[in-house]
Amino acid sequence: MDEELQRSLGEVARAARERLGLTQAQVAQKVGLVPGVYGRIERGDMMPSVPSLRRISIVLGISSDALMGVSPSQVAATVDEAPPAENLSPELRRILHQLRTWTPKRLKVLSKVLTVLASSFED
């Protein structure tokens, strides 16, 4: 799995770099990496550190999700956003759909009810 991710990340990085008309050396310099290290990343021989991945993403103008092959349908865009519906059971999707229309006061009451229910199931 890790080798496949490294290879995929390298392919996407190479395509993004070529789209911008940059050389590996130019990207490496902008990212703050030795050109040989950046070349290893593009060839799929090396996984960048998280800070390097962030800098690569910014320099190449592509999201880190795209570099890592994560599609928008697999994750939420922000921590405040609900997870994608495809990861949820049909029952939970129906409940969430209904709850999105509730007022904060109703949600607070439901939260208290759920807390009581959850504690009764722990026995």
Rank of each mutant, 00 (worst) to 15 (best):
A76I: 05
T101C: 06
G61R: 03
I58Q: 14
T103G: 08
T103A: 09
S57Q: 04
P104G: 01
A25G: 10
E91N: 13
L96P: 11
K108G: 13
R94D: 13
D65K: 13
V109P: 01
Q26T: 11
T101W: 10
E86N: 15
I56R: 00
M47E: 05
Q98T: 12
R43A: 05
E42T: 00
T78L: 11
I41G: 00
Q29R: 12
V37G: 04
V50R: 06
V109I: 12
S89D: 05
S49R: 10
S49D: 12
S52K: 07
Q98W: 13
L88M: 12
V34M: 08
R100V: 04
N87W: 14
V109E: 13
P51G: 10
K30H: 08
S64I: 09
V109G: 01
V34I: 10
W102N: 07
G32A: 03
S63E: 00
S63F: 05
E42P: 00
A76G: 08
L107R: 11
I62Q: 01
L107W: 02
Q24I: 07
I62T: 04
S89P: 01
R94E: 15
L67M: 03
H97P: 04
G44H: 04
I95R: 15
M47F: 13
R40P: 00
G32W: 02
S73E: 07
G32Y: 02
R94N: 14
A76P: 05
A66G: 03
R94Q: 14
L99V: 08
P72Q: 03
N87T: 14
V75K: 07
L33K: 03
P48E: 02
P84I: 02
S64P: 07
E42Y: 01
K105E: 15
D80Y: 09
P48F: 02
W102I: 08
L33F: 01
A77G: 09
R106Y: 10
S57C: 06
